[in-house]
Design a protein around this nucleic acid. Structure first.
Lengths: 335, 335
DNA sequence: ATTCTGTTTTAGATCGTTCTAAATACGGGA
DNA sequence: TCCCGTATTTAGAACGATCTAAAACAGAAT
């Protein structure tokens, strides 16, 4: 039932030339004479030849395949990121092997081994929570080019991300301009570089503006978790008049929780998210957020990996996208 | 710089056995003696051996790789579906090649060729809008096992989807129970099997309940497109008191558009979505929707493909998940 | 005709695995 | 001791491409 594919040999036979010549045609080498190239190409088209990339890789060690590991396929930030990666890779005639680590370093390890077995040319990794800092070095030891994205462990290497310190700064300054003076931060339990960065951005922005830190509350990274944390937010020592959230998912959950508690977000308290997911437009009130252009980060990551593949010795590079404040209704109090 | 990998040959050398024996160990064949197996396995671990699946495929024709083609990575219905697929495939020690057709049949063709070149064992396809009905036959001609998901073209073959006819029925009956009597349907411009199924479900449900069809409006499958269609909905010959939408994204957009037009959804008019995306909880009012369990459909699709790979001659099977009505606030009028 | 260019083409080895078919080892039983 | 069956191991040929180094072929200059 399973067909066997047309091979170089068969094309060669049909065209009356050698395998090697056909191979040159496939790879668009300038060495072959025009008339031969034409004839061979015609025959390839007629016989529906498809080059076996696996076999090619065995010989020349390039599989035109890259692995992408994300911790999650539900949060649309990751899927938009993924979309950007896939986009560039497809343009470059590469294929994406996708895997979901579910934020589990153990699964992540298994995935890496699987990718290794499949001979990927390189990997784009958003490291799972709890990833050991030595991982990038270990991967390098395998001779596997690596780009980290969105999150990062270990010493600085190729990395594509967003400037969350600046993002938090934008948000804080906006809230201050709205007249807020007691800011809280809704953080997450999961320890990632993304979390540290936002927290340190928050501390710095408060210092720069001289505004009161009303406290930091932690929630599980789910809508429900955030909704439940509303009570803690309201019970903080100094009652905040604005809450900056780790991301839009938490912000949306928090708003729902606040309203349940009889506190109307956007009127009684300002709420600002980070990432500007599409859902920011759908919440009520519409959520003020800081846009990070996830697809762009994905494209950057793909670009970095391409660069690294082209020149394994290149000096490490970091591509950081700038944030953009998107003002909606959730931060308009005291109109 | 690029390391060369440890090969069977090297392991064989170190263990003082032949390549063939090591290969048997790798594949967990019962043929090897226990003491040899142990020794070889120990050495493999020590030397960090990783089997080259590409090379293996070249010989035995199974790459443990499957392609997945989705038309879109933004709509979370597709990404949840994808997540289900990836889940099962990972369990089964298979790897997912992901590609985004962007609903473009031409791109879709290019992707299929690329997958072919990579020697995927099979493909899960959600056909792009405008896909020719002969495509499944063509793919079969290549000897490439295929499962269609969510949408479908050509004669019935392996397919994983949801029962949208029933889903629409649930929604209509719910609206009728709420006292609605003039139903409109907000459809999409893109012609897919998914669209036809919902429309015919709508027609059938109206016939069964004897309710007035207030008309069908078409919108682009975007939040903005739906918002703009609100005017058309309100201008229908018979003014509808409920609108059933192609999916939640359209429903959310429509609600925004209605409110802009001074018509409060959930009070002046009922709105019901399909799919029950996470966003249904975030809209205001919270959106009544019919849940389709996208990850489950993904798992089904993966299961169907696994079955087909195991037995290429198996009779075609269709896995259809049942819908579940989730009542929220957008359909509670006349409380 | 011969030598010398430069352009095209090619035979054959090679990548790392699996398959086939056959070889070898090990225990009895005759 | 020899033979036979079962359990284990193996040599060598695949798989389909690419690489290397060399061969064949042109045309021009001698």
């Amino acid at each position: 039932m399973r067909q066997k594919r047309v091979t170089l040999e068969e094309i060669a036979q049909a065209a009356g030339v050698s395998r090697a010549t056909v191979s040159l045609v496939v790879r668009k080498s300038p060495l072959v004479a025009d008339h031969t190239r034409e004839r061979v190409e015609r025959i390839m088209a007629e016989m529906d030849y498809v080059r076996d990339i696996g076999a090619a890789r065995l010989r020349n060690n390039s599989s035109r395949t890259v692995g992408v590991i994300v911790p999650n396929l539900v949060n649309s930030f990751f899927t938009e990121f993924l979309s950007g990666v896939e986009d560039v890779m497809a343009q470059d005639d590469r294929v994406v092997l996708l895997a979901n680590s579910r934020d589990d370093p153990w699964r992540q390890d298994a995935i890496l081994q699987r990718f290794r077995g499949h001979g990927v040319d390189g990997v784009i990794l958003c490291p799972a929570v709890g990833t050991e800092p030595q991982l990038p070095a270990r991967i390098a030891g395998w001779g596997m080019p690596l780009v980290q994205a969105l999150r990062e462990v270990g010493p600085p290497l190729d990395f594509a991300g967003a400037d969350y310190v600046a993002a938090v700064g934008l948000a804080v300054r906006h809230l201050v301009a709205q007249g807020c003076s007691r800011l809280a931060f809704l953080s997450v339990t999961a320890r990632t570089s993304a979390r540290e960065e936002r927290l340190s951005g928050f501390a710095r922005a408060l210092a720069e503006t001289g505004i009161t830190n009303a406290g930091v509350v932690e929630a599980d990274l789910t809508w429900e978790g955030a909704a439940q944390s509303a009570a803690q937010v309201l019970a903080l020592g100094t009652r905040p008049d604005a809450v900056l959230c780790f991301n839009d998912v938490l912000a949306a959950g928090l708003m729902a929780g606040l309203r349940r508690a009889g506190c109307e977000p956007g009127r009684d308290i300002a709420v600002v998210g980070l990432d500007d997911l599409p859902l920011a437009e759908l919440t009520h009130p519409a959520l003020t957020s800081v846009a990070m252009d996830a697809p762009r980060i994905g494209r950057n990551a793909a670009g970095l990996l391409a660069r690294r593949l082209a020149d394994p010795a290149a000096v490490p590079q970091r591509d950081i996208v700038a944030p953009r404040l998107v003002v909606r209704d959730s931060s308009f109090q005291k109109v």
